[in-house]
Design a protein around this nucleic acid. Structure first.
Lengths: 137, 137
DNA sequence: CCGGATCCGTTTCGATACTG
DNA sequence: CAGTATCGAAACGGATCCGG
């Protein structure tokens, strides 16, 4: 392979943020946030994967200090905190979608989320747009 | 949001393989394998991130038992083992590319890998195709 | 009640040394 | 050079407690 071939894999960076995602729970939180519309501490706690509250608090703080999410008070209920993705955070949507697609295509016990796979194959960028819109809503 | 809206985020699966990628080193190994053409134990060890040999052995074994990579003996040197991605493994390429793109777009100290960002924006699927071809080669 | 901090036993990590 | 053994350090995660 020629050394200076443009756009070859040697140009492909990947290092930034790796320690951020080098963690099971962070990905899960981002999934809940970006793909499932969750925004409250208790909602994240309720996920099937049963994250512990101290771990959740730690990861949320880490995500906030990395600029992926923001924390705000709920207007209607002062006890509640609302976590929302920033631009930088929602920009991760394509990563999650690719991961979901990969998982759905290779998980043996799939069968249910066939809709998603179909939609992806038919019109990937349209799917992305739709998901992005749902986040803002 | 209507409950039954097709292709909405509620349809988006993401759970399979999360414990596999919930790990900093696994991602790094896949990067080296898919984007940097590495295939030997020593090559992975040599990465700038300095993975420890026992961790590397453990992750390689895990990846093999998950069917993402295969281990084979080097014909020309029996001491060497060659690790290569399976179909299931190379199918992760889009995930890595999205991650790399995200990182390159948000890393403040970027500047070098501008080429990659440009190529992505210009022709994403072409870039993917090119990278895929380099893997096989 | 809800968000989150503290405590503490258990697991996992990872640097180094070591073996074939 | 590929891979293993050891062992201290760090992270995990369950239970429980606290402040608003």
């Amino acid at each position: 392979m020629p050394a200076n071939q443009p756009n070859s894999r040697s140009d492909c960076p990947i290092s930034f943020g790796l320690d951020l995602f080098g963690d099971k729970w962070t990905l899960l939180i981002l999934r809940d946030l970006l793909l499932r519309g969750k925004s409250k501490f208790g909602e994240f706690l309720g996920s099937e994967e049963r994250i512990a509250s101290n771990i959740l608090a730690d990861r949320l703080a880490r995500l906030e200090s990395s600029g992926l999410i923001t924390k705000a008070e709920d207007e209607s209920d002062r006890r509640q905190s609302l976590y929302r993705a920033t631009k930088k955070g929602t920009d991760l949507l394509p990563v999650l979608v690719e991961l979901a697609y990969w998982g759905a295509s290779h998980d043996p016990k799939t069968g249910a989320p066939k809709e998603f796979v179909k939609a992806y194959r038919l019109d990937r960028s349209g799917l992305l747009k739709r998901l992005k819109n749902e986040i803002k809503a």
